[in-house]
Simulated scan of single mutants.
Amino acid sequence: MPRKTVWTDGQDAQIRRLRTEGASWEVVALALGLARLAVIERAREIGAERLPANAVAFLDESGREPLPAGHGDSWGAINRGTSLENVPFQTPGDIR
């Protein structure tokens, strides 16, 4: 029998944020490291089961070239919400 998940305010906020950004249930579950159905059930409990009207539409960029290391778009997305947020990317030659 699976263990009961003890939900935190941070997980609830992450569910709401990711859904507002247009993330699929698979992406939300992967970000939380939990089963898709568990995340969907929790979203129902907190009232975040549907994408809000202001949700970002998914942009298919599968054909574009990869961004270089440290590009502002990718670096910012990777570090958003972490202690490295707003810290500029440094290449090994830049480290002092």
Rank of each mutant, 00 (worst) to 15 (best):
residue 14 Q to D: 03
residue 95 I to A: 09
residue 51 L to V: 05
residue 47 G to Q: 07
residue 15 I to V: 14
residue 89 F to R: 06
residue 60 D to F: 00
residue 48 A to T: 01
residue 6 V to Y: 06
residue 65 E to R: 15
residue 92 P to I: 10
residue 37 L to F: 02
residue 93 G to K: 13
residue 38 A to L: 14
residue 79 N to W: 04
residue 51 L to Q: 02
residue 28 V to D: 00
residue 81 G to L: 05
residue 71 H to M: 03
residue 63 G to W: 10
residue 7 W to Y: 09
residue 29 A to R: 01
residue 58 F to H: 15
residue 79 N to G: 02
residue 64 R to C: 15
residue 50 R to W: 06
residue 3 R to Y: 07
residue 42 R to T: 10
residue 54 N to S: 10
residue 65 E to I: 14
residue 6 V to M: 09
residue 37 L to H: 08
residue 85 E to L: 08
residue 36 R to W: 00
residue 8 T to H: 09
residue 10 G to Y: 08
residue 42 R to F: 09
residue 30 L to G: 00
residue 32 L to Y: 12
residue 47 G to N: 01
residue 71 H to T: 10
residue 12 D to I: 11
residue 85 E to I: 12
residue 72 G to N: 05
residue 16 R to P: 00
residue 54 N to V: 08
residue 90 Q to C: 04
residue 70 G to Y: 05
residue 19 R to K: 13
residue 18 L to H: 01
residue 7 W to C: 02
residue 39 V to N: 01
residue 38 A to Y: 02
residue 90 Q to G: 03
residue 35 A to I: 04
residue 13 A to H: 08
residue 49 E to G: 06
residue 22 G to M: 09
residue 11 Q to C: 08
residue 69 A to H: 12
residue 30 L to D: 03
residue 18 L to R: 00
residue 59 L to F: 13
residue 20 T to H: 03
residue 70 G to F: 04
residue 12 D to W: 03
residue 32 L to C: 05
residue 35 A to V: 05
residue 77 A to Q: 07
residue 76 G to K: 03
residue 68 P to L: 07
residue 14 Q to G: 00
residue 36 R to Y: 06
residue 49 E to R: 01
residue 78 I to W: 09
residue 87 V to D: 06
residue 66 P to L: 02
residue 49 E to D: 12
residue 11 Q to P: 06
residue 40 I to E: 01
residue 13 A to T: 04
residue 29 A to F: 04
residue 32 L to E: 11
residue 59 L to E: 15
residue 56 V to I: 10
residue 54 N to R: 12
residue 27 V to L: 07
residue 24 S to V: 03
residue 56 V to R: 15
residue 31 A to G: 05
residue 1 M to P: 14
residue 9 D to I: 11
residue 2 P to T: 02
residue 48 A to N: 04
residue 61 E to I: 10
residue 59 L to S: 14
residue 78 I to R: 10
residue 90 Q to N: 03
residue 73 D to A: 15
residue 17 R to M: 15
residue 53 A to R: 14
residue 18 L to V: 03
residue 43 A to K: 01
residue 27 V to I: 13
residue 21 E to V: 10
residue 65 E to N: 12
residue 59 L to V: 15
residue 34 L to T: 08
residue 15 I to Q: 00
residue 75 W to G: 02
residue 11 Q to A: 13
residue 68 P to K: 09
residue 30 L to S: 04
residue 30 L to H: 13
residue 80 R to I: 03
residue 73 D to L: 14
residue 67 L to A: 10
residue 24 S to H: 04
residue 18 L to M: 13
residue 57 A to M: 10
residue 59 L to A: 06
residue 2 P to H: 02
residue 12 D to G: 11
residue 81 G to I: 06
residue 96 R to D: 03
residue 1 M to L: 14
residue 13 A to E: 07
residue 72 G to M: 06
residue 80 R to G: 03
residue 55 A to S: 15
residue 92 P to Q: 01
residue 57 A to C: 07
residue 85 E to F: 10
residue 84 L to S: 06
residue 84 L to T: 06
residue 78 I to N: 05
residue 27 V to Y: 01
residue 53 A to I: 06
